[in-house]
Design a protein around this nucleic acid. Structure first.
Lengths: 150, 150
DNA sequence: TTAAGTGCAAAAGCTTTGCGGGTAG
DNA sequence: CTACCCGCAAAGCTTTTGCACTTAA
C-alpha cells in the first residue's frame, strides 16, 4: 500500500482508538504496519513471522488478538477462502478475489463492473447486506504451470 | 436435497468411481449421503458426528480423506468463508452465499440476476476462471436478535 | 493511577501422516 | 490377486484461555 494511503489508515486507527478507549500499543502499530504492506492475505502465523523481527519478544498470542481487534475496529477485514487458517486483508473497501481451487490462493482484482452489481432481495432470509465480494474461482498461473509439468 | 437429485448425484459418483478406478466403499457412500442431505455447509467434524451412528467404527481420518476425495471428484465443493474449519457444500452448480460477519455462518441464496454476472478479463493475472460465487456480507437473523438483546 | 494489554504456558481444536491389516473390483 | 482403502495412534498445525506482570493514557 502506498505511503499516503497507509498514513491515512493509521490516522483512522488512532482516531478510533481514542474514540473507543483502545490503547494504541507498539504491538498493534507494528501488526497494522505489516498487514497494510502485505498483498497476499497473510495468515496470523505469517504476520507473526514478520513482526517478530521488528518487535522482539512479541508473542503469537498477541498477534492473534491484535488481528481480531483490528477487524472489530473495521481497520482490516477477514478474507473468505477455502482452507483452514484464517487470513486477513488490508483492504476494507469493495474489491474482488480470484480464488485458486488448486492452491487456495486468493488474488485481489478490481472491476468497476462488478462493483455495480445489483444486490438481490434478502428480506425472506431476514439478512441485512452490508457489502459484497465476488469470488472468481479457477486456476492460477503457478498451478497451471504445475499441471503442464505433470 | 430431494430424492431424485440425490439419486442422480449418486449415479454420477459411481460413474466417476468407475472411470477413475476409485473404489466405491461403504464409508464413501455414507459420507456422500450425509453431505447431500445437509443444508448447513457442515465441517468435517459435524459430518463425522452423524456418520458414526450409521457406520459404526468409521474413523475421523476417513471422513477427512473422503471429503477431500469427493471434492477432487467434483461431487461436492468446499465453501469459502471466514473462520477456521473447512466446510463443505453439497451444491456444485452456481449459487451464492449470505455470509454473516458476526457468526461466520453461510446461507445459500439463488439469484438469476447474480448468475448472469459478466466475468471480467483476468488475462493480466493469467488466471483461468471456471465459475464464480457472490458473497453478500452482513448480519444474519439470529445475530440481529442478539444485538438487540444487548 | 488503573483499565486494558501483553507474554507465557498449557490446553483445546483442527488436520495430516505413516503403517499394518482389510476390502473392492 | 492386487492396488487401494481403512482405522489407529501419533504428530503437527491453528487458535484460545487463564494468570501474573506491564503499559498507555
Amino acid at each position: 500500500m502506498d505511503e499516503k494511503k497507509k498514513k491515512h489508515r493509521f490516522d483512522l486507527f488512532e482516531e478510533r482508538c481514542r474514540q473507543q478507549g483502545i490503547p494504541c500499543t507498539v504491538q498493534r502499530r507494528a501488526v497494522l504496519d505489516i498487514i497494510l504492506d502485505s498483498d497476499h492475505h497473510p495468515t496470523t502465523d505469517q504476520v507473526f513471522d514478520v513482526v517478530r523481527d521488528r518487535v522482539p519478544g512479541i508473542s503469537r498470542t498477541t498477534v492473534y488478538r491484535t488481528l481480531e481487534t483490528l477487524v472489530r475496529m473495521d481497520i482490516i477485514t477477514k478474507t473468505c477462502h477455502p482452507g483452514s487458517a484464517v487470513r486477513y486483508d488490508p483492504r476494507v473497501e469493495i474489491h474482488h478475489h480470484l480464488v485458486c481451487l488448486y492452491c487456495d490462493d486468493v488474488i485481489d482484482i478490481d472491476s468497476e463492473q462488478l462493483n455495480l452489481l445489483p444486490v438481490p432481495d434478502t428480506s425472506k432470509e431476514e439478512f441485512d447486506v452490508f457489502d459484497f465480494r465476488v469470488q472468481l474461482r479457477g486456476i492460477c498461473r503457478n498451478c497451471k504451470k504445475k499441471e503442464v509439468e505433470r
